[in-house]
Design a protein around this nucleic acid. Structure first.
Length: 575
RNA sequence: CGGGGCGUAGCGUAGUGGCUAGCGCGCCUGCUUUGGGAGCAGGAGACCGGGAGUUCGAAUCUCCCCGCCCCGACCA
């Protein structure tokens, strides 16, 4: 039993000045967490109970799926991370330290290397696979910007799993098993979530999906089709286009266009010159980008910007992307800033990437590669060739869903889980092989799967709180029932105590506000703030043999008989 | 890393060169009170983020440093 008279808990009446998002504000006010440093938090008793409840649910679901739990140290030697090149690649996000002999260590940001080596150390036959193992572990990442309380911390707890298979079909199966286990886990945690297509990107590998908990203060933006349920990370959103249906255009025609530095000014000029009917989406923007010191041109309709994040995610093998600067234009004298068109790109030796909307046969108004001149009827396939189509244009609400053609919305969410088909990147780097049926060495293929356990505390708080406080689903709440004793009569406290003990005997978890001093109002406010799902009030109604039972979520109140209170409460709670 | 804001008691804050740094919450003692953050009386708690400087005098002005929050870049 949690007794409030002795519980290490001090609720705050005012919002802490450094907290903005609801979960952070309420978790601090209700005495669940305290900030130690930027992105580093301590858990007080209520918070730690809640955290462990979530951890327990995650563990139970992983075990139920047949995954085995292991545990690695947080502090790890540099060498495995050098073998996979991540000692370098991770850059300043990696917490590094040295021992007294000057050897390098790191605080693990994620544990692919260690898991791979563990399997390598124990297994060497295809008969041992498939295998899925996991740990629940504190991770360290020196984030450039920790924020939103425990949503993005520098120290956080993650459940990370890894699957090991001999072939792609096996990996797909392991991936699906994790996907199913994640669905069960998040459903049990009471979270609303969408599974969205994501880019595997920096982790290497192919298929990847994110589990996103929608919430207005979330930091991830994603695309959602409310009609068919299609959901995708902005980077992974696919543009659906129809083939060009119009008639063949006239030959290219150059025209004067002084003082038209922007698309808007160009559209105005077009309408003035050619009698109206032009809009920005008929113009073609040639965005020059430096991709690891190679100049590329990205074509997008004039009404859209290039989204460098999308471009980067869809261009494989490029580590540094930036827009052309003046110094770059100097290196390409043929490119007239503000008047670039794709029709001469071959001459300049520039690779052309195009948004899928630039379909073969479509014609565009674009720059004439001469100062103060534009050109129209520039036709894809006739006047220029696209080297590769790429998803690089910005995504907007109202863009069409690639699976059902309805307009999509853009929504915000907290990322609570991520599943990847990693492939053989780590197994190759660390030489994890098994012998197959023919006695031949096979490189193992891997999947990697994460759940933000500490982050889930905040995500659930975000999705379930209301104006007056936290509001936990029963399974993860710090207790099932919060009994408030209020009044001066000793029988009130004795009755509260009796009900608490009865409920505990029935297997419920109880928090008992047995404090003598605080007034009724204080106790009610605290109970609402703390957010245990059922609140029982033993107070002045006891004189008439009544006790009040409240449901935190709905605010519903009922009077029950004191004599049979624990039975009634038990039934209501477990209903 | 760029832009903006902030740092005064456990929390929220007032205080733009002048007395012993003020108030609310919380905390301690006593009395009263007990169904919506009670009342009265008394009390404890602050090297005003740190350092250097200007000044007769600095929380207040100047410089440097540190820390924190928000937006962006970046990232689970």
């Amino acid at each position: 039993m949690l007794r409030m008279s002795t519980l290490l808990l001090r609720t705050l009446r005012d919002d802490p000045s450094d907290a903005e998002v609801a979960s952070h504000r309420l978790l601090v006010r209700a005495g669940y967490v305290r900030r130690i440093s930027a992105g580093i938090y301590s858990w007080l008793p209520l918070g730690y109970i809640t955290f462990r409840n979530i951890e327990r649910v995650v563990r139970e679901e992983m075990d139920a799926a047949g995954f085995q739990e292991v545990h690695f140290p947080s502090m790890l030697p540099k060498e495995p991370y050098e073998q996979t090149n991540r000692w370098e690649e991770y850059g300043p996000d990696l917490f590094r330290l040295k021992d007294r002999k000057g050897n390098d260590y790191l605080l693990g940001p994620t544990h692919e290397e260690m898991f791979t080596l563990m399997v390598k150390g124990e297994y060497s036959s295809y008969k041992d696979l498939p295998l899925s193992i996991y740990q629940i572990q504190t991770k360290f990442r020196d984030e450039p910007r920790p924020r939103s309380g425990i949503i993005r911390g520098r120290e956080f707890v993650m459940k990370d799993s890894y699957s090991f298979d001999t072939d792609d079909a096996g990996l797909e199966l392991s991936y699906q098993k994790h996907r199913d286990a994640y669905i069960k886990t998040f459903t049990r945690l009471g979270l609303n979530f969408n599974i969205v297509a994501a880019m595997a990107g920096a982790m290497g590998g192919s298929k990847s999906e994110e589990f996103l908990a929608p919430c207005p203060t979330g930091e991830d933006t994603y695309v959602l089709c409310e009609k068919c349920g299609y959901a995708a990370n902005v980077e992974a959103m696919v543009t659906k286009v129809a083939p060009f249906a119009g008639s063949a255009p006239a030959a290219m025609e150059i025209f004067d266009s002084p003082n038209t530095p922007t698309i808007d000014s160009l559209v105005d000029l077009l309408n003035e010159k050619f009698g109206g009917g032009y809009s920005a989406d008929q113009t073609l923007k040639n965005v020059m980008v430096m991709a690891d010191d190679k100049a590329i041109s990205v074509l997008v309709p004039g009404d859209r910007e290039v989204d460098l994040k999308r471009l980067g995610a869809n261009l494989s093998g490029i580590s540094d992307l930036r827009l052309f600067e003046d110094a770059d234009f100097v290196k390409f004298p043929g490119l007239v800033k503000g008047y670039i068109g794709p029709q001469d790109a071959k001459k300049f030796g520039i690779t052309i990437y195009a948004d899928p909307r630039i379909v073969v046969g479509s014609h565009w108004v674009t720059g004439a590669n001469q100062k103060d001149k534009h050109i129209r009827y520039v036709t894809n396939g006739r006047d220029f060739e696209v080297d590769a189509y790429i998803e690089a244009a910005e995504i907007r609400a109202g863009d069409l869903c690639p699976s059902c053609n309805e307009p999509v919305i853009i929504d915000r969410a907290i990322e609570i889980g991520h599943i990847f088909q990693l492939g053989r990147k780590y197994a190759e780097a660390l030489d994890l092989t098994v012998l197959d049926q023919n006695g031949k060495s096979q490189v193992v293929t891997m999947g990697s799967y994460g759940i933000g356990v500490s982050r889930a505390v905040a995500a659930i708080a975000e999705q379930t709180h209301d104006e007056i406080g936290l509001n936990w689903p029963r399974e993860i709440a710090p207790a099932d029932v919060h009994i408030v004793a209020t009044g001066k009569d000793e029988s009130i406290f004795a009755t509260g105590e009796k009900i608490a003990l009865d409920l505990e005997a029935k297997g419920l978890r109880v928090m008992f506000d047995d404090r003598k001093d605080p007034s009724a109002g204080v106790k009610f406010k605290d109970a609402e703030l703390i957010g245990i799902p059922f609140i029982v009030i033993v107070g002045k109604a006891l004189a008439e043999g009544k006790i009040e039972l409240r449901v935190r979520k709905s605010g519903e109140k009922s009077e029950i008989d004191a004599a049979t209170a624990s039975d009634t409460i038990y039934k209501t709670v477990t209903a």
